[in-house]
Simulated scan of single mutants.
Amino acid sequence: MNGDTHHDRKVSCRERLCQVTWGWYSMSMATGGIAVLLYNTPHQFTGLETIGKIVYIFNLVLFLTITFCLSIRFLSKSSALKESFQHPNETHFAGTCLLAFATIIIGAESYGTSSCGPWLQVALRIVFWIYLALAILEAVFHNWYLYHHHMASRQPFALVRLLPSFPAMLSGTIASVLAAKQPREHALPILIAGTTFQGFGFLISLFIYGEYFYRLNKSGLPQPSERPEMFIAVGPWSFTALALIGMANAAVEKFPPRYIISYADPSSGRTGAVTTGDIALVIAALAGIFLWATACFCLCIAIVSVLAPCRAFGGSGAPGMSLPYWSMVFPNTGFVIATIRIGQVLQSEAVLWVSSVLTVLQVAIWLTAALGTIWAVWSRRILWPEKVPQEKGGDKEC
């Protein structure tokens, strides 16, 4: 810091809290994702579930804290909410609130089922449909707003434009977790809705991928400070793979034996040896492997791009801690869980061990990002009014 003269003046806690933006929900997304990952990792040890519950509860506190800080910001200045949507970078991150909430829903199913009664399944079913309605509204109206105000011309980094449609896509991931514990009459519509909006979100992401790869080929890599956001590209492929396999696995039990197939021969009442759910699982597994390979490619490109500026690799030095570094956690968590699902469906112990190693690495990245954020806040590198122009996410003074 050059002199740090701006650090000498007093800044109230309220002023610092008013620097919290929509992008801070990426920390809750990441933390909730880690809690879900710890629950799903194939090689468990005594106490791991307890650790996962602690992380999940911590994420609840983190989500509420970020919401509280944003509320202070928006209530302190009447135009702050409007300005957050007018900022070319911050507006794209409004959807991270729903994404963080999605990890809370999945975590509640994972950790709450063994501790709560049947009421939890009813509550989660209701919350799923509420989440789906909010995700649809976010996808339609937020994208329309971005198109209407030509936000793409003010935000050249294409990948962040995935975020308004990402909550709808994550409906499939939620459905893959909830459907297995729901009664058949409720599981069927959840699975169909999950498939519908998983497909919608994934296809929307393909359109944005086209621009993203075109810009990489034409203009080269983004600025070093933006490169951690390249990990967002890992998300749609990974979450689609794990959602398809998870929903198909639930379909084996929840689909009637001749569901859909009976349309071709409605007069036949026979039960075939191969059911609709079996067919869905085979197709989903093969499609999941197909998608996983592309996710792995995007992951490798992002890793090399982020490491390239580091002095250890001959670069001039990596940028200091900022919110984009949290993009390295949530999408990669989806990649690790997708690897777990593939290992389970292929019954491959080798793949499962690889996923366990990836789990350890992912937790290490999460801890590094958390410690880096704490240090950056303490040293006034972020959440400091006069540092606003250098922060991603469009932080504003109250």
Rank of each mutant, 00 (worst) to 15 (best):
R270N: 12
I204M: 05
Q86M: 06
G172W: 00
H149Q: 04
S355Q: 03
A293S: 11
T173Y: 02
A293N: 09
E349W: 03
V377D: 01
T359W: 07
E397A: 13
A133Q: 08
L242I: 09
P257S: 14
S79F: 01
T173G: 02
L38F: 01
L98I: 08
F157Q: 10
I130S: 12
H186N: 15
G117W: 10
A123R: 01
Q182S: 14
V354F: 10
S78M: 09
M27A: 12
T31F: 01
P88K: 05
C300N: 06
G172Q: 02
S356K: 04
P324C: 04
F93V: 07
C398K: 01
L70N: 01
P88L: 04
G172P: 06
T91F: 00
A135N: 06
R184K: 15
C298T: 00
F58A: 14
A295D: 09
G107P: 12
L75M: 13
S348I: 04
R227A: 08
A187M: 11
P309E: 03
G112V: 11
F45Y: 13
H186R: 13
L17T: 07
A264Y: 15
G314N: 10
S262D: 15
I340R: 02
F239E: 09
C97W: 12
H142R: 05
G317I: 03
G194L: 11
E397F: 13
E138R: 00
R380D: 07
W22F: 15
F313D: 11
N332A: 11
G246K: 04
C97D: 04
R16S: 06
E226A: 07
D4K: 10
F166V: 07
L60M: 13
G343Y: 06
W375S: 09
W375D: 09
F202R: 07
W22N: 14
P183T: 13
E90N: 15
A302G: 00
W144Q: 05
K77H: 10
P156M: 02
S205L: 00
P228K: 04
I72C: 09
H148A: 12
F197Q: 10
A308I: 00
T91R: 11
V36F: 02
V336S: 02
S71H: 08
I105H: 05
R215W: 01
V11T: 14
G117C: 12
T271K: 09
L159H: 00
G220V: 00
A364Q: 03
R73Q: 06
V127A: 14
T359R: 06
A100M: 01
P222A: 01
F207S: 11
A168C: 12
A370W: 10
L48K: 02
F202C: 06
E253N: 15
A80T: 13
S356W: 07
L17G: 03
K53E: 12
S348L: 02
I289G: 15
L188D: 10
A80K: 08
R154M: 14
V351L: 15
N89A: 09
K53D: 07
F297I: 06
P319I: 06
P183W: 08
A364S: 10
M328W: 01
G246I: 03
L134G: 06
M1A: 13
